[in-house]
Design a protein around this nucleic acid. Structure first.
Lengths: 352, 352
DNA sequence: CTGAAAGCGCTTACAG
DNA sequence: CTGAAAGCGCTTACAG
């Protein structure tokens, strides 16, 4: 009787092994392996016997043994903040579609925004000898965090692991799919200015996130170009979630600010803000205009439909996998993705 | 120079092994293993030396070797139709949260609704010796499909693998989290009848899906109890997607049907239907009421907010993992989940 | 084309 | 408590 492994999960029962298949087919394990994998020519009748035996015994190769023996592997790891968030779900969906086409298995992890968990997952994925690790989501502009991530990733890459990310990571020299956050936010600001707005507020996420920093900077710069300011009291930081958007909007109003237009740096936050504004009796866009960023599913059919900057999320997912798996060039590649301003009913002309 | 493995991915470079750690710590691999895993008491100074060596060398255990040697494993597989679909994303998110608490790695696969791909993934997960396999999503009422799934799952379970599902699978004797689709749809029907509706139409998905069958049956039965019929021409089948809902609504109108209330069997389909109705110049709920099922994120803030039957999706995700991992009882358990009717602005009183 | 043998990197009875 | 040794289930040079 085997002793149960402590803390590492339960053991499995006995399995049909290659050895068993080989024996019932009357060949050596080596031949059985070759017949099954098609790596080498095998006499036709033997091949057939092996395949039949495998089928009859219900043989399922042990992927761990294969990985160990061949040091090959067909899984890729994807780390995002939360699959429950439509932004990540859309990108993940693109990754899965592309992975399926190459018979890759995807290990998906949600960090729930805990940096420590992110590091832990990278480490687990390294232990799995994942063929590639994909980081979906903004990097933190935090030296300590960057250092520890870098120190996990560098040895992984040195050993042949591939890494690619979606969004900007300051210090990571890896292939990246880079939404043009700055340009997109700038274009959005100009569109909003064209509507006549001059009084803006921004609901931001944690400022250490590169995505937040870039969108805010782009938005602010475009306003400045038009001679429009964005005073500090009109910039409210909240969590990068729906509730964060809600809270930020509440805080904005609490400060007595009454901009004619509010920009939430992500659609998810915008959705929260929309609820908050409505609860406070403000009509969108009659009393205040609201815009987001990303164009996640459904925001186009909200009450009212949300103005935003559209990103091709699913394709970004496909692309980040492709980048990771492509033949290694000398240097890392950055694929820039344009965002397209989509004006919808949540923004109108200022009334005041 | 090693030869590249054909078709199974790229090989990794050399890694720091347990052996190396043991040597630099001046102990045997056995002791190093024990020190690292804490499975047995190890003299304190040796333990420290091992840990230091491991840290200094940047040792990452090879999970495949561990799995092979200990026949233990810490990954669970989740198979759903499409993570990009908010319904699955919400459930998956619950699974991930629960998995994180137990240091489990999640392999997530999207079948994109191809039954063959579902079978293939189960097989891959078996090869990975996943500790548990979770099937998220309705079963097909199709003997051939049921048989092939069963034949993949049965040996897996016999060998100690755990299986649990969300939604009804006719022939699978496994732990299941079972939304009360029939009862929920019935309650919804009664609520709509109370509003005064008598002319209904249903936008269904593929009828072989148990979820579709149950919701349709529950809805129809409740209408019948009230003496209200549901003629065949008022039942339109579409794909289980947003586009499917759109197409079904279009088809309904093409048939010249003008019900006062339309029930789409999922929110995702309802969203598509909403767009179709609007494009045809029909106002919701003024010209026609519309209801869905699931209460996926954001449908509460659509234009107009969608009436639906709310399911605790994230919790269902947590629960299905818990079911799979719990101590095995004699027989499989079914956890029923109630749906709650939520009346919102997409449904009103009939105007006709 | 086929088989015997070594080896992938760990864990774990089995003896000290 | 510690180490030598066997074994987990495959793959793959190396010789035929």
């Amino acid at each position: 009787m085997q002793q149960t492994a402590v803390g590492r999960g339960r053991e499995h029962g006995p399995h049909v092994t290659l050895h068993a298949v080989a024996r019932t087919a009357g060949v050596s394990p080596a031949t059985a392996s070759r017949a099954l994998n098609g790596t080498t020519r095998v006499r036709e009748d033997l091949r057939r016997r092996v395949l039949e035996a495998a089928d009859r015994l219900g043989y399922i190769p042990n992927a761990h043994a294969q990985a160990l023996a061949s040091s090959s592997n067909n899984t890729v790891g994807v780390i995002c903040h939360d699959v429950g968030d439509p932004y990540f779900a859309a990108i993940a969906s693109g990754v899965m579609a592309a992975a399926a086409e190459q018979d890759l298995l995807v290990m998906l992890a949600s960090t729930f925004r805990a940096p420590a968990r992110e590091i832990a997952y990278v480490s687990m994925l390294r232990a799995q000898r994942a063929r590639a690790i994909l980081l979906i989501g903004s990097g933190f502009q935090d030296p300590a965090w960057e250092r520890s991530l870098e120190s996990e990733l560098a040895p992984y890459m040195r050993d042949g692991g591939r890494v690619a990310v979606v969004s900007r990571h300051r210090s990571l020299r890896v292939d990246t799919v880079q939404p043009e956050n700055r340009a997109g936010a700038g274009a959005l600001a100009r569109a909003l200015l064209s509507l006549g707005h001059r009084e803006f507020a921004v609901l931001t996420g944690p400022e250490r996130l590169t995505t937040v920093a870039d969108r805010l900077a782009g938005f602010r710069a475009a306003l400045a170009d038009a001679g429009v300011g964005l005073p500090p009291e009109r910039i409210v930081e909240g969590a990068f979630t729906r509730d964060g958007g809600h809270a930020a909007a509440v805080e904005l109003l609490r400060r007595g600010q009454r901009p004619t237009c509010v920009f939430a740096v992500t659609d998810v936050m915008a959705v929260g803000a929309l609820g908050a504004l409505r609860e406070r009796g403000l009509r969108v866009p009659d009393d205040v205009s609201l815009a987001g960023f990303d164009d996640i599913p459904l925001v186009g059919e909200l009450t009212p439909p949300l103005t935003t900057v559209a990103l091709p999320l699913t394709r970004m997912g496909r692309d980040v996998l492709a980048l990771a798996l492509r033949e290694r060039g000398a240097r890392s590649r950055v694929e820039r993705v344009r965002g397209e301003v989509v004006l919808r009913a949540s923004t109108g002309r200022p009334t005041a």
